[in-house]
Amino acid sequence: MALMTRAGLLLLLLITSVPVLADSAIEVRDFERPVMAERYRDLTASLRCPKCDAQAIDSSDSPVAADMRERVADLLREGRSDKEILDYMVARFGEFVLYNPRLDERTWLLWGLPFVLVMIGGFIVAVFVRKRKHAQVRALSAEEREYLNALFNREGSE
């Protein structure tokens, strides 16, 4: 019996957990200045909804996302800076809500590695080309030539 209930619960979970992509919330919000509307759009696009799977608060219709949008708008009208608003959200919901992770000791690798790799890449190209610049073209060995011939002949005759 317990097994049956558990199976039933599991089935329910499976059924109910599929439609995560709820349709977007459309709210009419007026700001005095267009700059503010722009900032509102950027902020709500870079804050992650804590309840949802992987959505910014601007596109989620979960209640907490709606509350957060409302709060962002209020704080903007109060004249807070973007950083203050982000700090405000982090203080309540944690670093998790920042889609744009801050540079700190945990994330230096995340932000730094691509730049380091570009530099290493540049170095590799430099070394490679220097080494190869005067390299002589080596003709294929007799064995290689024969193998190639055999391959192409077989392919051609098919």
């Binding site: 909804c49 309540r92 944690g94």
Partner: peptide, 8 residues
């Protein structure tokens, strides 16, 4: 709830 960071 918002101050507490309640999301569900």
């Amino acid at each position: 709830g918002f101050e507490l960071g309640v999301y569900g």
